[in-house]
Structures are given as C-alpha cells and as structure tokens.
Amino acid sequence: MKHPGAALEAQLSAMLDGELSAEEAAAVEGHLSSCAQCRGVLAELRGARELLEAMPPVAPPPDLLAAIKRDAATEMARGESVVSVFWLRWRAPVAGLAAAAAVMLAVLAPWQSGDRGSDPAVCIVPGHQPLVAEQAQPVAGEIAATESETIIAEVTRAPEAGAAMSGVSRGSRAARPSARGRRVVREEAAAGEAETSAPVSAEVEPVLAFAPQNAERASARAAGPVFAEARPVMVASRTTIDEDAELEPVGPSPVEAELATGIVARMVLDKYIGEHLVQSSSNMLAVVTETPSAELGTMLADDDDASFGLCFTDAMRRALTETENRLP
C-alpha cells in the first residue's frame, strides 16, 4: 500500500465515514496495525471530523424565507405577465399560420398532381362565409427571391407535403397549373359543420403535413374552436370548383398573412425548418390549443422574446405573399 499518499489518506478519511467496502476496510485496518504514522493521521482526521460534525447548524435570519418567497412571487408574476403578453400576441398569429399553411399545402398540392378539376380543393372561409378566391395565373418565372425559394424548399421537406410542393419549390413552370380563366370555389360543406369538428389537439402535425387527401381532416382540425377563438373563425372546408363563376380575391386577412409570415420567417431564421418544421409548428400550435400558460412560458422562454417579432424580412414576406397570390 502506497504510503504516505493521497490515496491512503483518502481511504483513511473514507473509513471514518463508513464509505469503504469490507475488503478495503480490512486492507486499511491491516495497514494501520503496523503503521504508527497512519494511525496518527487517522487520529487527526477523526478529530477534525468530530469537531466539524459538532458544529451546530447555522440559523438563517428569520426574515430570509419570507424574502425568498417574496422574490419568487415577484419573479413568477413577472413571468406570468410575460406569458400573458405572449399569449395575446401570438395566439392569433399561430392560428393564422396554421390556416395559411393548411391552405397553401392543400391548394398547391392538387396543382402538382395535374388533377385539380376533379379533386376536392380547400379554401379558407373567414367568418363562416364562403371563400371566393382568384385563380392564380401561371407563374411567368421563378419565385423571385432566393430566400423565397429557400423557404418553400424547406417547407417541402415536411413529410407528405414534400412531393406535392417540390415543383413549386423549384419554380418549375411545367409543374404549375396553366391559366384557366376564372373559377369560383364554392363552399360545399357548411361552415357550421366544420365549426363543430373536433377541437384542435396537441397533435397538430397533420395541419402542416397533410397530403391532399388529408385536406379535409386537416381542415377540420384547423377549424376547431380554439382557432375560432383566436381570430375570426377560420374554416377550411371541402369544396367543388365552378370554373364559370365570378372570382373575388380572398385569402387570409392582411394581418393574418403578415403575422403568419412572421412566424414562418422566424422558423426559417431559427433553422427550425426542414425536418424540424412539423415538430416546431406542432409546438407552436400546441400553444394555441391546450398548453397551460406555465408550459407556454417554458416553451417560449427558450425563444428570444425581444427578437421574436423582429424576424420579418422583405424576402420572406414576399415569399408568402407570392404564395398567397397563387392561391385560388
């Protein structure tokens, strides 16, 4: 056994605390029986330990606990306030994002399939009114901004939506619908029916990830009461298309579009896109649905509050604006 050394000293000390295994203790005791120096060290250690353990606990100042509780109450109240502000500020935008994303994916996807005449389409009906939207004209060129392409390209990574959106992401004219004049998107399903659909749950991935055939289900989710509460009712419903009817450009309100764009911009800037888009969006939408305020605060506290609303860029705004302009 090494002697004298830190290892032995540590073992002597640990033996006092009963922290040695039986084998280790036996070895140390065997050494002690023949080493007066180590017995002296052990006595020193024991004396120190006894002195220290005999120290009475330090009594905290009587007002310390009250001060800590006061601090905590103030801090938590401040945090709750921040959460409330966030809630009020972003509840509607998140709803807008969900609706805009649902529309964007559901509407653009059939174009890619080249079967838009027979497939059901989806539209947004603000305030329960039928949505009548102007048919997008064929796109003469690429989506202008590189950033725009980036956004769309990244969005297409979302499961199921990828194939449908890839043509748009590349700005491929061949993949886009040709000009067909005007058409009316007439609401077929009653708005009230959509309104009574199942409440939006935390399971929100389909809202952003649905394929064309899932449009109705996603629309029903997007039409849940939470969204109705968040902003004038956003109802997406199954529709048929009348190509002879008059067009009236309708889409998300400018405020909604801008706010939705902002959140998308945020996601892009934060690199929450691609494979993370669906999950990230789910988190955001979970906020809208049923997340308790404290959990919301926890989630949002990970974000830089100060920069949250400052992530708009012209390119990103243009990206969604251009996309919206193509919505029928």
Partner: peptide
C-alpha cells in the same frame, strides 16, 4: 467519487493541521 474522497481527506488534514 474518488475525487470527492481525496478532496475531503485533504480538507480534513488541512483543517486538522490548522486546528
């Protein structure tokens, strides 16, 4: 754990010497 043991033993020894 070994580091803790060493630190504690060293601290006790130093305390004992100063005591």
């Amino acid at each position: 754990l070994g580091t803790l043991k060493s630190r504690l033993a060293r601290a006790r020894r130093q305390f004992a010497e100063k005591w």
